[in-house]
Design a protein around this nucleic acid. Structure first.
Lengths: 196, 196
DNA sequence: AATGATGTGTTGATTAGTTAACAAAATCGA
DNA sequence: TCGATTTTGTTAACTAATCAACACATCATT
């Protein structure tokens, strides 16, 4: 890909860091463009060269972080990047720990739902992929089960971040893996009893 | 004074921070312009817009810091800014503590003498002022005494920084004040014995 | 409802920084 | 000592950021 002028990279980083810093001070709705440009130490006009408004900024900021997250969690995997929270939840928790300030800002801010929505989308994507890969084949009627697991997983992530990561990433990954195991057995048992 | 374009301020700060960071990694002589521009994350050409070479950069960096130091240590004083290390050494040590990384880089780097020289110059300046103000009036033949005190003081500062500030600024200030008192008595006694 | 203050989005002229190239000097290794 | 590599200092064309001004919208207070 073409090399991007380093001024652009610096400006964007300053703006995004400013947004994250401000979001740990006050709610997103109360943050003004003036606040952001001031905190980022750049001219207000410069901000408009990169983002149409603060919602555009937030959206791009989230997309960028989630993209990095996906990248981080699938380095060693082949094929298209998918979040495999069933088989390897550990990298995700490690990533979240490393970028705690951002994700904490996102999750503790009332009125911001796009973040959770996008995260759930990613998790569902990963679970679907896992199912397709043949682990649990029960046709195409998995929608409810997938939604169930994704909601549960994201809910746990949200709880973990909001409570300042009371457990280590390793413990979180281990416990979730245990739950998935039980869940899987449960699904099989139910299916068998229906068939029998 | 005229407002300076914020791009200039950001660039200069990045360059100076890079220099200080590099000086805690390797000796000044081994630092290249390439190193600095790389660490500062800006184009090499940009550096030349502000400094003629790395010696110019170092010099301006030192002058800037010492100027800030002088400013910090004489906020509440009237008249021209002078470092009054005899009557109030405390602010100086507080300032040094706050900007430890810079002064440590300067003092632990072999081959850099301009820093010590400028510091001694400032201290002598302050002591001279203090003498002129009437505390110890013995005509104009103070040169040796002033040089003696300034060297001693800067030597103590150097020791303190090089040893990672083993004592608090308060203790340092207190002890030096005690020494100055004794020194003063000594000077008086000597003078009296000569006169008598 | 009027008013003053603050925030928004856009503009044009200007300035600073970037990039990539260059020749010359210095440094390094064989 | 020679040749390769790195570093230096400068340049020209280009791009991004700055500043200040503007009209307009929003909001809080009286």
């Amino acid at each position: 890909m073409a090399k991007i002028d380093r001024r652009i990279l610096k400006t964007r980083e300053a703006i995004r860091n400013a947004l994250i810093a401000l979001m740990s001070e006050k709610s997103f709705e109360n943050i003004t463009i003036n606040d952001i440009s001031e905190k980022a130490n750049l001219n207000r006009g410069t901000l408009y060269l990169h983002y149409t408004d603060k919602y555009d900024l937030l959206d791009k900021c989230i997309k960028d972080h989630l993209s990095n997250m996906l990248n981080y969690c699938t380095i060693s995997q082949v094929g298209e990047a998918k979040l495999d929270v069933i088989n390897s939840p550990l990298p995700l928790f490690q990533y979240l720990e490393e970028h705690f300030s951002f994700y904490s800002s996102m999750l503790t801010n009332k009125g911001i739902t796009c973040f959770q929505e996008q995260l759930i989308f990613m998790v569902k994507n990963g679970i679907n992929e896992r199912l397709k890969a043949g682990e649990i084949n029960q046709g195409d009627d998995n929608e409810v089960a997938v939604q169930y697991m994704a909601s549960a997983f994201v809910g746990v992530v949200e709880w973990w971040i909001k409570n300042n990561m009371p457990l280590s990433p390793e413990v979180m990954a281990q416990q979730l893996w245990g739950i998935f195991e039980k869940n899987y057995s449960l699904v099989r048992a139910l299916r068998n009893s229906n068939e029998g």
